[in-house]
Design a binder for these strands. Structure first.
Lengths: 325, 325
DNA sequence: CTGAAAGCGCTTACAG
DNA sequence: CTGAAAGCGCTTACAG
């Protein structure tokens, strides 16, 4: 930086100002400095800057899932890239971190509290995940992706309106004339598990328990769930499945039992993930606004780091009609 | 740190020494400092430390794959976790970074050259990936996972002995009495694509071109490749497939054409990835030593950062016999 | 608009 | 074995 100041014929202070937005810098000085930077190939030392500003200029994107299951989810990539992009615009780097084991969680906590990151973008789907409490206890700015069950009041989050999405879908199924509509829910300790079932009930009211089965978001669980459903309620004419991956399993189960989709049983998914359009038949589903979710998460986290209060953002979902229902 | 020094009744210099290995620190001082650290809840500021030591104490784990395909590969997780673990033992943090687009590559380069990371662990499978040159041009310490085609002499790497693995497998197939052994190769611009084919040829010599087909490591490509192979050489009695995922596709193709495995056609894979044992029938395959690969990558990178010369490490593979061949 | 100076929190020869 | 001091490379009131 001294070299740059020398080459530009100004002081280091002026160079620093020019580099940081250029407030209170004359056009001539700015130009000379820009040129000097180019000539010397200067690049700021982030550690020195962080030491002076008390800001790491980076945030941790923490994936708190024991099985790394989300890694295989195309939606996860959308989210990660979206956040990276949105934060890059503010010159903050996203550091991806896996925190599946309690040891890894410790490492993440230390990492952030030591000052390596200014905040955390957290993907954690299960109620009672200890990392939420750990981070909160340390006063780390954090924004969660999806409704953080049990922590709605004390942590910021961005979520799609799962409940309304489910409502839209079930309402649509009814409008198509389906009358015995079953549901395959997600795990009851995840927001997608409870909210999508709630939306289904909002529309259908008290349904017989035989119409409700649940899975764990995997394709295999969707297939198994559908076999159970058919055994309990052989006359279902439609089924709302709480994720596209499970819906793919459901399609397989129906095919195996010789039922046509949608003629014999209609199938509706949730997510509009990459596989939705590739299914046979292509899935009618609910699109989650991943791009907006990621930009909102980034925005919220930046605000929190600046000292703003917590906030929750709920984003609308959209019905996507294809051929399965 | 001043607080700690105060509480322990020593100088900051002594505290620093105690924190960094305790050389030249008396037992009494060490004890007092340990206690003070605990009482005050002190944790070092990594930026200040890095500024003073000129070391980031972190390395970037860069995934240079346009499609993020490796994310879905269970082997990738083994590798990532292995490196993280090995480096954590040396107090260095692993920063996972995606560099699929040229814009993201730029970001990674800047990130590292700015001093955020001391080096990079690079997963890049395709010949001619520009990131290798970019990193090398900046004199960044880097160790590549797998043989870096065209860069064997100027960059460090750790790889499984693909060629020998292929040799072992084909030799085994011969010993089982198979005589018309086809091969499904990987893409010719990847080390797995060229080396596994080379190993196959080492054992079989000049084979008719009709016995050689290729895929792109996806399951669908393996299925398609096998259909081509059967069309060209309907009398094959065994096929060596260059990855387990493609082998799964091959099994599907054989099933579809009514051939039994291994009675009609034997199938051998490569990788021993998670799906190998789950296939029907379970795959005979070649195990890659992922745990050792990751520890060797970590070790090599640490050495490079210390100023050591480049080095290549080739690790042996192991034949795993199951039921498909 | 600009420069001199203090400060961010650590490490590490150096002298003792 | 220990302390005083310089230095790592930046930012930012402050005075002009």
């Amino acid at each position: 930086m001294d070299d740059v100041a020398h080459a530009a014929g100004v002081s280091r202070g002026t160079v620093s100002r020019a580099l940081n937005g250029g407030r209170n810098v004359s056009g001539a000085a700015q130009a000379a400095i820009d040129k000097a930077v180019r000539q010397t190939g200067y690049v700021v030392n982030p550690h020195a800057r962080s030491l002076a500003t008390q800001r790491a200029m980076s945030v941790a994107f923490v994936l708190s899932e024991p099985q790394d299951r989300l890694f295989e989810d195309p939606n996860f990539h959308l989210l990660l890239h979206g956040c990276t992009q949105a934060l890059a615009d503010n010159d903050v780097t996203v550091l991806l971190t896996l925190a599946g084991t309690s040891e890894e969680r410790k490492r993440v906590s230390r990492f952030v509290t030591a000052g390596h990151a200014d905040g955390v973008l957290l993907v954690s789907t299960h109620r009672g995940d200890p990392i939420v409490d750990e981070l909160l206890a340390q006063d780390v700015p954090v924004v969660v992706c999806g409704r953080p069950l049990g922590h709605e009041r004390d942590v910021s989050y961005v979520a799609a309106d799962d409940r309304d999405g489910a409502r839209q879908m079930v309402t649509y199924l009814r409008s198509q004339g389906y009358r015995r509509i079953g549901v395959v829910t997600g795990p009851p300790d995840t927001p997608g598990g409870v909210d999508r079932l709630a939306g289904y009930r909002d529309v259908l009211g008290d349904v017989p328990e035989s119409l409700v089965v649940s899975g764990d978001y995997t394709q295999a669980s969707g297939e198994a769930a559908l076999h159970r459903l058919l055994a309990q309620a052989s006359d279902v004419d439609a089924v709302f499945v709480a994720s596209d991956l499970m819906a793919a399993g459901a399609l397989a189960a129906l095919r195996r039992t010789g039922r046509r989709v949608p003629e014999d049983v209609a199938v509706a998914g949730f997510d509009d993930s990459r596989i939705a359009a590739a299914c046979h038949p292509p899935l009618t589903t609910i699109r989650q606004p991943w791009a907006r979710i990621s930009t909102e998460m980034a925005r919220l986290l930046l605000r929190l780091v600046e000292g703003d209060e917590n906030a929750a953002v709920i984003l609308p979902t959209e019905l996507v009609i294809r051929e399965s229902a």
